[in-house]
Amino acid sequence: MPTYKAKAIVLNTFKLGEADKIVVMFSGSKGKIRAVAKGIRKTKSKFGGTLEPFSVVDLLLYEGKSLDIIQQAEIIMSFKEIRADLEKYKYGSVMLELIDKVAQEREESYEVFSLVLAALQCLKEADADYQTLLTVFQLKLMAELGYRPHLARCPACGGEVPAANEQALFSFRFGGLICDSCRDKDADAVDVSAATRAQIEQALETPLARWKELDFKVENVRGIARLTELFVAYHLDRKLKSPRFLDM
């Protein structure tokens, strides 16, 4: 059987049979990987705590017919700080679920992989304001996947959008701010305040590692968070399960 190596983030695990688990991971070289870790649920398993969600691992895998089999796994970064903090864990879960939904198997995705890694690193070091971090991550992820919101020109007709200090309409269908004459083309477009427009722009321009410089007022983060949430939901065919637990 052919083997291959990969560096991946563990997204989720499912019990399989008596003592095995299916481990769902995301790698730069192969996109999403679904592989079996044999005997991992036994206390003396060689895998121990290496394949828990949030862990970044070096893997050696056997290529199987439908599922690959994990031969060796070694932790590079455990991100145990995220797992040991209920708040961080909740926001981190949304990040992992989102990646699980958008990632494809056998598809090189080095940019998205670095983005997730950077986001988890920020979450690990953060001490507050996790919602802002999550929102910035979501916007950047959408941009990376080719859905960067159009903010300068109306994506429906190429016309002028309302001036930056004005409220505007955001269309999920057209993927950005639309002009007044196109408002009838999408009845589901939502109003976006001038403050939120500025925030989206800032979020897309600022590197993720410098997210703390984003001056999102707590009362304003709601607007952009809600908009981003809807934007992401529009592009996924299924609803994410984890966001409803954010206030748990």
């Binding site: 060689k46 121990g48 705590g49």
Partner: peptide, 17 residues
């Protein structure tokens, strides 16, 4: 660490704990 196990095979999360 599980009783009867070897230290060198313990992963860093388990050994740290």
């Amino acid at each position: 660490l599980p009783v009867g196990g070897d230290l060198e095979y313990a992963d860093e999360v388990t050994l740290g704990s």
